[in-house]
Design a protein around this nucleic acid. Sequence first.
DNA 1: TTGTATGCGTTATCAT
DNA 2: ATGATAACGCATACAA
Lengths: 330, 330
Amino acid sequence: MSESKSVPTMKDVAREAGVALGTVSKVVNGLPVGEDYRLRVEKAIEKLNYRVSSYARGLRSNKTYTIAVMVPNLISPFFSKLVNCINHELSARKYRMLFYATDYDPAQEQELVHLAEQQKVDGIICLSYNPHLQVSPDVPLVSIDRYFGAQIPCVASDNYGGGRLAAEKLVENGCKNLAFLRIGSKLTNEPNKRKDGFIAGCEALDVPYTLKIIDDGTPYTAFFEFLEEHFHDGKLDFDGIFCVTDSMAHVIRGALTQHMGLRVPEDVQIIGFDGVRHFGDLEYTCSTIVQPLEAIAANCVELVLSPRGENAPALICLPVSYGWGGTTRE
Amino acid sequence: MSESKSVPTMKDVAREAGVALGTVSKVVNGLPVGEDYRLRVEKAIEKLNYRVSSYARGLRSNKTYTIAVMVPNLISPFFSKLVNCINHELSARKYRMLFYATDYDPAQEQELVHLAEQQKVDGIICLSYNPHLQVSPDVPLVSIDRYFGAQIPCVASDNYGGGRLAAEKLVENGCKNLAFLRIGSKLTNEPNKRKDGFIAGCEALDVPYTLKIIDDGTPYTAFFEFLEEHFHDGKLDFDGIFCVTDSMAHVIRGALTQHMGLRVPEDVQIIGFDGVRHFGDLEYTCSTIVQPLEAIAANCVELVLSPRGENAPALICLPVSYGWGGTTRE
DNA sequence: TTGTATGCGTTATCAT
DNA sequence: ATGATAACGCATACAA
C-alpha cells in the first residue's frame, strides 16, 4: 500500500471519489452539487488530506485572498499593534497577510511595492512616508496617515482634533503655559496636523504656547537644550507639554524627572500621542491622545477589499480620545 | 496608442522584444543568453513594466520564496520584535513573509498551519504552545521555544542558564532571600527551564528561595496575595524577586511600589526575562535576562531554508545575557 | 544559443 | 447536475 505519492491534487481526489474533476472543484468551492457526490468527494479529500493550491487558484482566477501590509517596522509598539489589528480584520475575512517592513527606506519601500505586485496580491495597505511612491493602478492601495492624492484612499486619526484635545486637557488640568515638542519630517503628512490643532486649541483658550520642532535625524539633545533654556531657578517656564508621540513623551519625562529634578505631573504635566500601553495591553505609558487602532484597521481592510471607483472616500478621519496615564493630574 | 492591455505577461514581452518566450524566461531568471537579446528583453520589460507572476512560477516550480511565520500576537513587544528580526533575515535573502497570529487558540493555530500549507509556502517558523499541532512532513517547520520532537528543529534561548544567571545576579547584588514568580501553562516548553535554572543557581549559592507558580488564566491577584502573606511590618520577606517575564516584572513592581510602599531596587530587587525595551529600542523596562532575538531569528531562518535531513540539529540553545534596567542595584 | 511544446493544479465554459 | 476540456503564466526538456 504505497501512500507515497507526494502531494495530492484535485485529480487524485476525483479518481479516489470516482467523480469528475469539475465536481471536486465545485465541492471545494461550495457550489451546488448532488448530496451523495458531495459526501464521496469530502471523504476522499479527508482521506488524501488534500488542500487546494492557492497558487494554481491564483493563477487561474486572479484572486489570491492575500493583502500586502507594509509599515516601517515592528519595533515600535504603535506599528506592531496596528499590524496586529489589521491581521485580525484580515483573518476574520479569511484573508492572508503578506508582511513587509521598510525601515523608512524609500528604496526599500519601492522595492516592496514591486514585490507585492509581483506576488499579485489583492491589495496593499501601507504606512509610508515616501512622497514619490510609485504604485501600479492595477492593485488597490490604501494609505495610513499619509495622503497621496484623491485616487489613493487614506485612513488616519483625527490628528487635528487630537492636538486640540491635548491643549484642552492640559488647560483643564490647570496649565498656564504650554509647549509643543515635535520631531519629524517636513513632509506634509497627517500627523503634522497635531501641531495645527494644538495651536488652535491654545488660541481658542487664550493660553500662551511655545513650539519646538526639530527635523528627523536631529538628536534629542536639541530638546534638552530647549528645556534648559526655559529652566530657571529649579523651575520650568512650562507647566504643560504636548509631545508629538508617546515615545517622545517618555524620553522627555525622563529628562525632566531625572536630570532636572522636576516632578511629573506635580510640576509639569505631559501629554503624548498614540495611546501606547505598557507591554501592549497594560496601562498607558503616559497620558495620551489615543488613536483608534481597531477602527483604523477595520477601515483600511474594508476599503482595500471593496471594489474601487464607487464614490470611494479620499480621506477617512477617525476620532481620537484622551487616555490618562499618570503624567497629568487626574 | 492604446496602452490599456491589462497586465503584461511574458508573452507580451517576447512579442515586444521580438524574441521567443523561453528567451524571456531565461533573462528573467538570470540564465545565460546572448548579450543583444538580453538588452532587447530588458528594454521590453522596462517598457511594459512587466513583473513575473509568482503564482505561475510557484505553480510550475514549487518554489515560492515565501515563509509562513506564526506567533500568538503582535501586541506583546517580545513577539513583535522577534517577528521584526525574522522579517529582516527573510528580506535579506529575498524571501517574503506570510504572517499569521494565533491568539493562543490551538484550533486557530491548526487552521493556520493548514492555510500555510495550502499556500504552499517553502517553510514555516512558528511559536506555538499547542502540544498536538499536526504538521505535514512536506513542509519544513522550525519551532521557537517549544520542543516538539527530534524531527522538528527547535530554536530557543538558554532558559536554564538564564534562570541561573538571574539568581546569581540577585545574590551578587546582595540579596539574601529570593522568590520566583511564574504564570504559565503546565506544558513542558523551554521557558519552564527558567525555574530549574533559578533553583540550581540558588542551591549552588546556598541562598533560600520560594517558588510561586500559578496556572495560565489565573488572575494576578494570586501573586499579590502571595506577596501580602510574606509582608510583615512594612517589610517583605524577600529582597530579590525573579519574574518569569518582563511583563510580569512590570506588574509586580507596580504592586510593590504603589500598594505596599516598597522601594525598588532599594528594598526589593527584581529581575525579569526577555529583554523588552521601552518603545522597542529605548532602555530596558526592568533589569532582565536578555534573549538574543537577532540570533534566534537568524537561526530559525537558516534552519527553515536549509535542506532537511543532513544531520539537522534538534535543538539550538542560544546564550542569554544580563541587562540592567533600574530594578536592581548597579 | 534560441525556439517550441508540454504540463503544473485550478476554474470556467461547454456539451451531455 | 455532471463530465470533458481549454486556458491561466511560467519553466523546462527537447528540437532546431
